[in-house]
Simulated assay, not measured.
Amino acid sequence: MPKPAIFWDPAGLELDSLGSNSYLRSTDGDTPYVSLSIRMLSVDTPETHYPGRSKPARSDEKLAELASWIQEGAAPIDDGLAAHLQPKLETGRAGTLHGEQGEAAHEHFERLVEEKLTKPSGRKRRVYLKSGNEPFDRYGRLLAYMAPNYTRAERDEMTPLESASFNLLMVASGWAASFIIFPSLPKHSDLCLFQEEGRKAVEDGLGAWSDPLTLTGYEFRMCVKLHTVTKELMQGKKLSKAERLRWIDRYCCDMSTRGVYSPQDYYRVPAYDRIFIWKKDVNEAVARLNLSPEV
Score class of each variant (00 low, 15 high):
Glu14Asp: 15
Gly236Cys: 03
Leu168Gly: 02
Ala144Ser: 04
Ala285Thr: 03
Pro160Glu: 07
Thr91Trp: 13
Thr151Asp: 15
Asn21Gly: 15
His227Pro: 15
Leu81Trp: 02
Leu143Gly: 02
Gln195Trp: 06
Asp265Gly: 14
Ala5Gln: 08
Ser22Ala: 13
Leu24Tyr: 05
Leu239Lys: 04
Gly19Pro: 00
Glu219Ile: 11
Val113Glu: 09
Lys238Trp: 05
Cys253Gln: 04
Arg250Thr: 13
Gly259Tyr: 10
Asp265Cys: 14
Thr257Lys: 05
His108Thr: 10
Ala94Lys: 00
Gly99Asp: 02
Tyr251Thr: 03
Arg25His: 05
Arg126Ala: 08
Glu162Arg: 09
Glu284Met: 05
Glu284Leu: 07
Leu185Met: 08
Ala67Val: 00
Glu100Thr: 14
Arg25Pro: 12
Arg152Tyr: 06
Arg111Trp: 06
Ser37Gln: 04
Gly80Pro: 05
Arg39Val: 02
Ser165Ile: 07
Ala285Met: 06
Trp175Leu: 12
Pro87Leu: 02
Ile277Gly: 03
Leu143Asn: 03
Pro212Asn: 04
Ala64Glu: 08
Phe136Lys: 04
Gly12Trp: 08
Ala94Met: 11
Tyr23Ala: 03
Leu112Thr: 00
Ser131Ala: 08
Glu134Tyr: 08
Arg25Asp: 14
Gln101Lys: 13
Ile275Arg: 01
Gln235Thr: 08
Lys119Gly: 07
Ala67Gly: 00
Glu294Gly: 13
